[in-house]
């Protein structure tokens, strides 16, 4: 009973950390859902949940602008693009008939992931951070906007150039090619089944 009281006190100490743990649990579980769900279209939609809970974390960290940008760009934009790509590459939306990776690979990947987490945790854990106890500025969107147009205007412009280049590149890559004229022979590279096989030249 005493321990239960202690746990209750622990939960009541800080609403912020209570909310943090709820959002963190949701995001971890949904992240597992994204990578382990057998139906890939469903994991595409679970991704919205992960991004939504991370948006909540940003709100807890008082980054209002980034929270809304997260919602607009990730939860709507990128997820939409991913779902459309899923529909185009997996038209009948069947359960992914791909087998999972070999168990040895899975074990190795799990080991590497745990090792990575432990390395980061042990290097982050010592409490010699130079923390600032100042509260965050109320209108930090203003601070962000001013910094983006003065100190960081060059990276800002480069970001727009990058987005333009990526846009054009994506359109060029994904554009359907013209069907070849009938009777014209051309090479089609099919999947090479074994290393000895040559690229197959076939008539369309």
């Amino acid at each position: 009973m005493e321990q239960f009281e202690m746990l209750k006190a622990l939960a009541e100490t800080n609403v912020e950390s209570f909310m943090f743990y709820i959002l963190a649990t949701i995001s971890i579980l949904l992240a597992y859902g994204v990578i382990l769900d057998r139906t890939i279209i469903r994991s595409g939609f679970i991704l919205i949940g992960v991004f939504g809970s991370i948006c909540g974390l940003f709100l807890l960290l008082q980054a209002q602008f980034l929270a809304l940008a997260q919602l607009m760009i990730y939860a709507v934009g990128i997820t939409l693009v991913i779902v459309i790509a899923l529909m185009l590459t997996n038209p009948r939306m069947e359960k992914s008939q791909l087998s999972t990776a070999a168990p040895a690979n899975q074990l190795g990947a799990f080991m590497v992931a745990v090792g990575l987490f432990m390395t980061i945790y042990l290097s982050v854990r010592p409490e010699n951070w130079t923390l600032s106890s100042e509260p965050l500025d109320m209108n930090n969107v203003q601070v962000l906007g001013r910094a983006l147009t003065t100190d960081y205007s060059l990276p800002f412009e480069f970001a727009s150039v990058l987005l333009l280049a990526a846009l054009i590149g994506a359109v060029m890559l994904a554009k359907a090619e013209k069907p070849p004229k009938p009777g014209e022979e051309d090479f089609e590279y099919s999947v090479v089944e074994d290393s000895a096989a040559e690229p197959v030249a076939s008539k369309r």
């Binding site: 971890i28 597992y32 890939i40 590459t89 992914s96 999972t100 990776a101 690979n105 990575l116």
Partner: peptide, 22 residues
């Protein structure tokens, strides 16, 4: 630590999954 956990999950998923979109 939460960021490290999510990063490790992402790494695991990137190695394990065989669908390119995943």
């Amino acid at each position: 630590s939460l960021a490290a956990v999510l990063f490790a999950i992402g790494l695991y998923g990137m190695v394990v999954s065989r669908n390119a979109v995943r």
